[in-house]
Design a protein around this nucleic acid. Structure first.
Lengths: 93, 93
DNA sequence: TTGACAGGCAAGTAACTACTTGCCTATGGT
DNA sequence: ACCATAGGCAAGTAGTTACTTGCCTGTCAA
């Protein structure tokens, strides 16, 4: 899950799914190139979605020949739980 | 910052610093091998600390021949801000 | 002042990862 | 039935990254 969000393209995919949930692979490809200026091939996006799915950040469901992708941000809560955000002990620039 | 937390060793370093803040490089090395069962060399840990510092998750200060490291979890708040945690639209297993 | 200790620098290596390329399967409209 | 569309599979490649190795610098205590 930590490695899943380590890639900028995957982070943008999460952004896109947060703005418009339940997109197919082709929809995501189109929007990534149009709105976000990415030049990712379909296969590249597909592999990114696979990583995000393994991380539990995206779920997918088949509808006929379409595969719609749904975002699930819940795994990210582990980060805030593991390292609670608080100011550091000393003042650092 | 995302890439900084993508590595398990660096996550354990953050754990260790959260439990006991303001440690030197050698203290961290010792505790990582003792408590966490890691067999990392000093140079490896040093490089990890450099990555964490570049990410703003760790600050360091020289005191004589000691360099003490301080954790700063504030950059992690960007994650929760960017992708607010909420349940997914549909029920997924 | 000399030696032990804390840490830094830099090149090399091995493993991983993002991406491409080419081909294949399956679904649905006409 | 047929073809276009949506997606999958797998091997290969280039770039990245974690780690090691060897040597060097600076600080403090005896």
């Amino acid at each position: 899950m930590f490695k899943a969000v380590a890639d900028e393209t995957r982070r943008i995919i999460l952004d896109e799914l947060l703005e418009r949930d339940e997109q197919t692979l082709f929809e995501l490809c189109t929007r990534l190139t149009m709105k976000h200026g990415l030049s990712s091939t379909r296969q590249a996006v597909s592999q990114h979605l696979e990583v995000l799915e393994d991380a539990g950040l995206v779920h997918s469901e088949r509808h006929g020949r379409y595969k719609i992708h749904t975002i699930d941000t819940r795994p990210l809560a582990q980060i805030a739980e593991r390292w609670p955000v608080r100011p550091p002990r000393e003042d650092m620039p």
